[in-house]
């Protein structure tokens, strides 16, 4: 079995299995945790505080006006490379063929040249994010192995993908194999690291917002 067959065969199967099991495990464990009953009288109706929870997803997705000058650029940087990643992952023809074979549906993609430009911009932004993390004393202090490894594995997927598209460094089959292997590693790491924010970020904001709204606090 050659490297490509291994990467898109057994390695991918194991990675997908661990990804699915891990994600459901962590979500279930989180959802079933014991929540201390709030014996206070609700300050808002059930409908209102659940609505406020959903509203918080939006309001907490951008800095409060008071902090926008301090954190706005950093958040914009984060959103930009996330959007770049989504475009590259979802609109590159080989990715569509890959996802299509997994889920049975396909959609139109973008020309390779457009995807390459977006990927290079995303890569640059990704480096800028690391620079910010390393140079900001506060963020550096808050960062641990999880942050750096999650950054590294995502970066590896992007770099190997670009190398495969541009056919730099090795044969296309080898580059594609290394790219798929890096995706396999990302899937294996995903449920156990901070990449899980993809699943936690919105529910956690909604829950916080709902709890605060129940207590009558503005969210």
């Amino acid at each position: 079995m050659d490297l490509l067959s291994f990467a898109r065969g057994p390695a991918l199967k194991v990675a997908l299995a661990v990804f699915c099991a891990g994600v459901v495990w962590r979500i279930a464990a989180f959802a079933l945790l014991r929540i201390r009953r709030d014996l206070n009288r609700p300050r808002n109706s059930l409908f209102k505080y659940l609505g406020a929870g959903l509203y918080t997803i939006g309001t907490r997705s951008w800095p409060h006006p008071e902090f926008i000058r301090r954190t706005g650029a950093g958040e914009a940087l984060g959103y930009s490379y996330h959007m770049g990643l989504f475009v590259v992952v979802l609109l590159f023809a080989p990715h569509i063929a890959f996802l299509g074979s997994l889920f049975g549906i396909t959609w139109p993609g973008l020309p390779n040249s457009v995807i390459t430009v977006i990927a290079v911009i995303s890569l640059t932004l990704f480096l800028a994010v690391l620079f910010r993390r390393v140079t900001s004393p506060v963020i550096r202090m808050l960062s641990n192995f999880d942050d750096y490894f999650s950054w590294f594995i995502t970066m590896l997927v992007m770099v190997t993908g670009l190398a495969a598209t541009a056919q730099i460094g090795a044969r296309y089959s080898t580059l594609v194999a290394v790219h798929i292997l890096s995706v396999d590693v990302l899937l294996l790491w995903f449920p156990f690291g901070k990449l899980m924010h993809a699943f936690y970020i919105f529910p956690s904001r909604a829950i916080n917002g709902a709890i605060l709204a129940r207590k009558g606090a503005a969210s």
Binding site: C20, A21, V24, L32, R34
Partner: peptide, 23 residues
């Protein structure tokens, strides 16, 4: 897609059991 759904279903079931046990 059928194989993927089967794999996802089985592994998600395993995940749900593990998650419930953890909780």
């Amino acid at each position: 897609p059928k194989q993927v759904v089967e794999l996802a279903g089985i592994t998600a079931g395993v995940g749900a059991v593990l998650g419930t046990a953890s909780a």
